[in-house]
Amino acid sequence: MKRVICPQCGDACGAPEEARKQLLCPGCKAPLTENSPPQDSTSRVWALLIAAAILYVPANLLPIFDMELVGRPSSDTILGGIAALFASGMWFVGGIVFLASIVIPLLKILGLSFLLISTSRLGGVEARLASTRLYRAIESIGPWSMIDVFVVSLTISLVQFGRLASFSAGPGAACFAVVVVLTIMAARSFDPHTLWAIPEEKR
C-alpha cells in the first residue's frame, strides 16, 4: 500500500502498489490519476498536431476574406492582410496580427512536437524545468490566435453596404479556426507529468 493524494479534495488515500483499474478517491469519488493505469496521451497529441499542421497550409493559402468593393470582387489571405497593414504603415497592428495568426500557431505546433520527441530523452532537472516552462507558455498563449477569427466575424457584420462594399468569410477562415481549436486541444491533451515521469538523477 502507498499513499496517494487525491487531486481534487487533497485527501491522502491508501492505494495498492499496482492498480489494475481506475481507483477513485473514497471521499469525493474523483479519479486518482497517479494510480490509474498509465494513459498514454502521446498518440492523441500527435494526431491533433498533425491534423493542425495539415490544415495550417490551406488556412494560409486560401482567402479568409472574400470581398466586393464597388463591384470589383477580390480576396485576402492572412499574409495578404498583414502585408497590407504593414504597407500602410500600421506596424503595431500588423505586428499583433502576425504574432497571433502566424507565429503563435507555428510555435504551438513546433513546440509541442519538440516536447513529445524530447520527453523520453530528458536528462537533468534543468532540461525538465525548461520543458515545463515551454509547455506552460504554449498552453497560455493558445487563445490569442483566435484574434483573426474575431476580426473576420466583426468585419463581415459591419461591412454590408450592398453593392458598394461587402465582405464575407472565405474558406481559409474556417480552416484557420480549426487549426486554432486543434492546437488548443493538443496543448490540453499533452500530459506534463510525462516530463517528470522518469526517476530523477542526483541533484
Binding site: 496580427v97 483566435m146 474575431f150 459591419l158
Partner: peptide
Amino acid sequence: PGSMPGVYLVGAFVAAVKLSQL
C-alpha cells in the same frame, strides 16, 4: 479555456483599425 473576452477585445481593436482605413 473556451472563454476569451480579452482576445475578442483585441480582435475588435484590430478590426476597427483595419476598417477605419476604408
